[in-house]
Design a protein around this nucleic acid. Structure first.
Lengths: 134, 134
DNA sequence: CGGCATCCAACCGGATACTG
DNA sequence: CAGTATCCGGTTGGATGCCG
């Protein structure tokens, strides 16, 4: 007699599979990189360091929460450095690392694609929606 | 006497701003493109058409819901074509359009970056977390 | 085979208030 | 200035069941 039923074995397999997926490194990282704010921040930092508040102003529509959170994750992943100048008031600069720069070219390209091809996408959408209505 | 109070005017300005952001075309599109599944699907379709079920098998961890939803949005945006062959059982093929191909190179590059630089990112994370613990 | 509809838990992200 | 902390509504996305 087996120590585990078929159902149990299936459960275990499913659990291991799920765990793999959750850990699956590249997919997770890919999700991060695709993040709207991440792309915009990295693109903004392409031509030099920026202060926290400058980033907030440059990237229209970002909340402090998202800005801080995104910057933290970028720092953690070694894509940007955070430099605090203990003046009064405090000054914090963010700058792309070399690793960050290698990625920024790619994300910037995607951002540029979105801007230059938006017309075509928009037309495609109208055509699609029109057919759906008919 | 003004027909609107300052508060009202502020409200209206805020509303207009929000509306702009919601409509802000490129940001919205950028968010879509960055989507985890979108990247994986477009990358998978790079080397030729694929059937629905093949995509589901190739892209580990995607649910039918997400697969269908992503494919619909890609079709709507004119990035992929959907071809139904009314055999029994039905056969549906998805293929990148020319527009889709132009994007696929970029997204594939990002996906590749994630795969090749994951080690560095992972190391950076460990260093960051270690410092935080201290 | 290739979906669509529904339910529901989990997470995301904005608003607000407060701090060194 | 550059955050942190908390609340909470909206969206995401997996699970399930049914259909042509």
């Amino acid at each position: 007699m087996a120590t585990r039923t078929a159902a149990q074995r299936r459960e275990e397999a499913r659990f291991a599979y799920d765990a793999f997926l959750r850990e699956c490194p590249t997919n997770q990282l890919l999700g991060r990189l695709g993040d709207k704010w991440i792309s915009l921040i990295v693109s903004a930092l392409r031509d030099g360091p920026m202060r926290y508040s400058d980033l907030g102003r440059r990237i229209a529509g970002v909340s402090q929460k998202m800005l801080t959170q995104s910057l933290r994750s970028l720092e953690r992943d070694g894509l940007v450095t955070r430099t605090v100048t203990p003046s009064v008031p405090v000054r914090v600069d963010y700058e792309l690392t070399e690793l960050g720069h290698s990625l920024s070219d790619l994300l910037f390209a995607v951002k540029t694609w979105a801007e230059t091809h938006f017309d075509q996408v928009h037309e495609a959408r109208e055509r699609y929606d029109e057919e759906a209505a008919a």
